[in-house]
């Protein structure tokens, strides 16, 4: 009786293995399983290395780097540029053809969100920090301040 069960189990495993090899010969597709597809970075860090650490390391430990960098900067006053969130954002967050940046609050277009929403990891960096590259923010600030000046009727708005 036991031998019969074992042989059935053996056949099952063999079947699984066989179907695995049969499938492997077919064209490679992702099927119904989705996987994050974050936008490409703007530049490589160096000729040998695309990011500030090897990709494997970045995928696993970027959160630790950012957290330690935050503690060093905020609690110990050591501002280093190694793992700067602003530099990450400047290189990784890209705009569409109209110059608009993706939202960090919804969708999967934003570089950070594409993986974080997939893995159910919430980010609180952007409650304080900008989720878009710096220059856009500064031009936005100028825009806002000029609007304010407009409404005050300051001389620079008169023809």
């Amino acid at each position: 009786m036991k031998a019969r069960y074992l042989s059935i189990l053996g056949k099952l495993m063999l079947g699984l293995l066989l179907s695995l090899t049969v499938n492997a010969a077919e064209p490679v597709t992702s099927g119904s399983v989705t996987i994050p597809n974050p936008p490409k970075a703007k530049t490589n860090f160096s000729a040998e290395q695309p990011c500030v650490e090897p990709i494997d390391v970045m995928r696993r430990s970027h959160g630790l780097f950012l957290k330690h960098s935050r503690n060093d900067t905020m609690r110990h006053g050591m501002r280093t540029s190694n793992y700067s969130l602003v530099t990450c954002i400047n290189c990784h967050v890209t705009s569409d053809e109209h110059g608009n940046y993706p939202s960090v609050k919804e969708g999967t277009e934003h570089f950070c969100r594409s993986c974080h929403s997939y893995a159910a990891v919430t980010i609180d960096c952007f409650q304080c920090h900008a989720s878009h590259p710096e220059e856009v923010i500064s031009s936005k600030v100028n825009e806002v301040s000029s609007i304010k000046l407009d409404s005050l009727g300051t001389p620079n708005t008169s023809p």
């Binding site: 099927g31 995928r59 990891v121």
Partner: peptide, 21 residues
């Protein structure tokens, strides 16, 4: 640490029988 995104892609492929992945 491990690459949880890659692991999730593995696990989803396992439970939805997408072995070609």
């Amino acid at each position: 640490r491990t690459d949880i995104v890659q692991f999730k892609a593995f696990m989803l492929s396992v439970i939805s029988f997408q072995w070609q992945n």
